[in-house]
């Protein structure tokens, strides 16, 4: 009872990175709170899935296995979580800020009347004093998230309602198994006790899903473009430079919104958080919400014709000039100097 729960996203029997990242964070929180970490796996053909989960320090894995539970649909997955949470009364419940977690989380929080904070960038344990009610709350989950387009960072708490629910984007937390020999328990759920036939009201008619070919999260070098690249054509320069350096192309929200680049390339608070060894920001002014997603890069080069661009303040090297001039020169001198 009153443990930390993580909902695991499963695609083709594989647990999503975002869920493993949350388990890693969940383990830390559970240890701090001296409680257990429990995982919920809902889907089909989940035999042996616990073996993947235990190394992350999972004490209990709840498994709901039924052909109708994969691929994900809203109502059956929420029905299971709602009932399971009513029985187990978690103090904290985490899920990915993905199209699954952001579909499921609000539904569950509404049914349980519990607070949900979307897209947290940090989760911490702390206390809170309610001066009006003269009451002190210990061991609350601080749900820290950007708000207002990333211009402020808010710490949200749920003093009275449980579970304290939060979603976190992929790549924000680190993924780290703690012990390959960690042993937990399996709780196989009887699906019929949790889901009724009417929950299968929406069916998946067609599904074209493929593992993304774009993997900016683990790229060691990222060449990223902003609105200042001017057009989708302008982005070709970035692909050229990335190809030469062996990196990936990223983009700011403004560039993605303008249609210059695919959403999968978006870096920042509403995209992916990255920590490459080299980040080259081209034509990016550096809105807070972008900087928050790349400031931990080892080396940052900013190329911009505005010497006062905010991105320059976090850059190790600032090249003041036009991207159309500078990028071809970078390519030229890299080719000349590399072996």
């Amino acid at each position: 009872m009153n443990n930390v729960f993580v909902y695991c996203e499963i695609e083709d029997g594989l647990i999503g990175d975002v869920s493993l990242e949350l388990l890693t964070k969940g383990r830390t929180l559970a240890t701090q709170l001296s409680c257990q970490l429990e995982a919920v796996a809902i889907g089909h053909k989940l035999n042996g899935i616990e073996k993947v989960l235990f190394p992350y320090g999972v004490d209990v894995v709840h498994i709901a296995d039924d052909p109708r539970l994969a691929p994900y649909t809203t109502l059956p997955h929420s029905a299971i979580l709602i009932k399971l949470f009513q029985q187990e009364k978690p103090q904290i419940a985490l899920m990915g800020a993905t199209s699954v977690g952001r579909d499921l989380g609000p539904r569950v929080s509404s049914a349980l009347h519990s607070g949900l904070t979307a897209d947290c960038t940090a989760l911490e344990i702390g206390s809170h004093e309610d001066k009006k009610a003269d009451k002190v709350y210990e061991n609350l989950l601080y749900q820290i998230r950007p708000a207002f387009g990333g211009n402020i960072v808010a710490t949200i708490i749920n003093p009275d309602c449980r579970p304290q629910m939060a979603t976190v984007r992929e790549g924000v937390m680190k993924k780290e198994p703690i012990d390959p020999a960690y042993k937990g328990k399996v709780n196989q759920l009887n699906v019929a006790d949790y889901v009724s036939d009417t929950d299968f009201a929406v069916s998946v008619i067609e599904r074209h899903v493929e593992a993304s070919k774009i993997n900016i999260k683990s790229a060691p070098i990222i060449v990223s473009g902003g609105y200042g690249m001017g057009s989708k054509d302008g982005f070709k320069l970035l692909f050229d430079l990335a190809a030469v350096l062996g990196g990936e192309v990223g983009a700011s929200r403004a560039a993605v919104d303008a249609g210059f680049a695919d959403h999968a390339r978006q870096i920042g608070q509403t995209g992916v958080t990255v920590r490459p060894k080299l980040y080259i920001a081209c034509g990016i002014s550096g809105q807070i919400q972008h900087i928050a997603g790349m400031q931990e890069s080892s080396i940052i080069i900013a190329i911009n014709n505005d010497p006062a661009a905010p991105i320059n303040s976090v850059a190790d090297y600032v090249i003041t000039g036009d991207v159309e001039t500078v990028i071809p020169k970078l390519i030229k001198y890299y080719k000349k100097n590399s072996k």
């Binding site: 708490i157 303040s313 976090v314 600032v318 090249i319």
Partner: peptide, 27 residues
């Protein structure tokens, strides 16, 4: 159920950066 405990303005730790021009030698 959710309460805002604290709101902070976002301030990034500025780095000491080297500024270059688009001059060939510097690049």
């Amino acid at each position: 159920p959710t309460k805002v405990k604290k709101v902070e303005n976002v301030v990034f730790q500025a780095k000491e950066s080297k500024t270059l021009t688009d001059n060939d030698t510097e690049i």
